[in-house]
Simulated scan of single mutants.
Amino acid sequence: MKNNIKVLLVDDEVLFRKGIAFILEREEDIEVVYEASNGKELIDFLETTTEHPDIILTDLKMPLLNGVEATKLIHVNFPNIKIIALSSYDSKSFVANMIDVGAVSYLVKNATPQELLKTIREVHNVGFYYNNYVMEVIKETVLDSANKRSFEIVLTNRENEVLQLICDQKTTAEIAEILFLSPRTVEGHRNNLLLKTTSKNIAGLVVFAIQNKIILIYD
């Protein structure tokens, strides 16, 4: 059981939160470690416990401290915790804002249980998960921005290959198998990519790749 994915739920709608908890607790590889009703309660818990979750599922609009502000704080103070936004709002501005402040995935509340479980496992295994809609939002907010920056970063052929596979949401083990490398070597290339691109995380690498047309997002 020690390999369970530890999940923390944050939502002020008790019935919805308990419904999500019920779905997750039926899975052998997922454990709900705590439930909070707002961002303040979430931050208070993280600051007073030594057993942090792997993933936080958070709503956006909540009393006392909303999901956006809580995500900003967690991204800075608890960078190893992955945040999945789970919201009723699917407007592009909400999605773009949450990705920008540090969320590694975004789900709307009408998603199916299967989509929820897939997202949690992908985030745990890969570090992020963007469905087609979120990738399209990233494309529009990054590529079509009038203020987008121009990069002059030279990547090696191998780094480009690794980056392509990261953007395909492959795990370290899968990349190692595809490129006939050891997992440790793949981790080394990934760390070099983070340093070269000044990305804070894997999600940042994906944004960099789209911005610099290293990967293509089709209309």
Score class of each variant (00 low, 15 high):
residue 110 N to I: 11
residue 117 L to P: 03
residue 124 H to E: 12
residue 78 F to G: 04
residue 59 D to Y: 07
residue 60 L to S: 03
residue 86 L to Y: 09
residue 50 T to P: 02
residue 105 S to M: 06
residue 110 N to R: 09
residue 130 Y to R: 09
residue 115 E to S: 12
residue 116 L to V: 12
residue 120 I to H: 04
residue 88 S to L: 11
residue 69 E to Q: 13
residue 66 N to T: 01
residue 48 T to A: 01
residue 55 I to D: 05
residue 58 T to N: 02
residue 75 H to K: 14
residue 73 L to P: 03
residue 131 N to M: 08
residue 101 V to P: 05
residue 94 F to P: 00
residue 60 L to C: 14
residue 82 K to I: 11
residue 132 N to L: 11
residue 82 K to R: 15
residue 67 G to H: 04
residue 79 P to T: 08
residue 116 L to F: 12
residue 94 F to E: 08
residue 66 N to C: 02
residue 52 H to I: 06
residue 114 Q to W: 08
residue 65 L to G: 00
residue 102 G to F: 10
residue 94 F to H: 13
residue 90 D to K: 14
residue 83 I to P: 01
residue 136 E to N: 11
residue 136 E to C: 00
residue 108 V to K: 13
residue 118 K to A: 04
residue 100 D to K: 15
residue 47 E to P: 01
residue 47 E to N: 12
residue 114 Q to I: 14
residue 68 V to W: 00
residue 68 V to S: 05
residue 100 D to W: 02
residue 93 S to H: 02
residue 53 P to E: 11
residue 83 I to K: 02
residue 75 H to P: 00
residue 74 I to L: 06
residue 85 A to I: 05
residue 94 F to C: 05
residue 135 M to L: 15
residue 48 T to M: 01
residue 51 E to Y: 11
residue 135 M to S: 13
residue 113 P to I: 11
residue 103 A to H: 06
residue 134 V to D: 08
residue 77 N to C: 01
residue 77 N to Q: 10
residue 58 T to S: 12
residue 136 E to L: 03
residue 78 F to N: 05
residue 111 A to V: 12
residue 96 A to L: 12
residue 124 H to I: 02
residue 78 F to S: 03
residue 66 N to L: 01
residue 81 I to V: 13
residue 70 A to V: 06
residue 58 T to E: 02
residue 111 A to S: 15
residue 99 I to L: 15
residue 96 A to R: 14
residue 61 K to D: 04
residue 90 D to Q: 12
residue 100 D to A: 13
residue 123 V to C: 00
residue 115 E to L: 10
residue 96 A to K: 14
residue 57 L to C: 13
residue 81 I to E: 05
residue 69 E to C: 03
residue 59 D to M: 08
residue 51 E to H: 13
residue 97 N to W: 00
residue 124 H to K: 15
residue 79 P to K: 12
residue 67 G to Q: 04
residue 91 S to K: 07
residue 97 N to E: 15
residue 102 G to H: 11
